[in-house]
């Protein structure tokens, strides 16, 4: 129980940090003349199963820098995401899986 509360607090801090980072990132990109956006669609395999976990995950993805959750497949296996600043497949996927692991520790 204590462990879960600790994870919840660290997750909230992480969420707020991501929120501020996302906004300054997109503001910098909009205000500088050269826009280095490279939009692409990605599909993320889901390991979360609960409704609350999925809500938190898609909400957080919409608020993190350069990703917007679009659609979920009917069998809840894949989440379709629009990425604005695409670098490499492995790097993006590692970041998404990292966030998913954090949420899985809270909601179980």
């Amino acid at each position: 129980m204590m462990k879960r509360a600790y994870y919840l607090v660290t997750f909230i801090v992480f969420y707020l940090y991501k929120l501020i980072e996302a906004n300054f990132y997109i503001a910098w990109d909009i205000l500088t003349p050269k826009m280095n956006s490279h939009p692409v669609f990605m599909e993320i395999p889901l390991t979360l199963t609960t409704n609350l976990g999925l809500l938190l995950y898609s909400n957080l993805l919409s608020m993190t820098p350069g990703s917007l959750s679009m659609d979920i497949s009917p069998d809840r296996k894949k989440l379709k995401v629009h990425v604005l600043y695409f670098t490499t497949e492995e790097e993006m996927m590692r970041e998404f899986m990292n966030i998913q692991q954090k949420i899985k520790r809270i909601t179980g």
């Binding site: 996302a22 906004n23 997109i26 503001a27 909009i30 956006s37 939009p39 919409s62 608020m63 350069g66 917007l68 629009h82 604005l84």
Partner: peptide, 10 residues
């Protein structure tokens, strides 16, 4: 879709 990025977060 890029416009949606700008129109959702900021």
């Amino acid at each position: 879709f890029s416009r949606l990025h700008a129109g959702t977060k900021a």
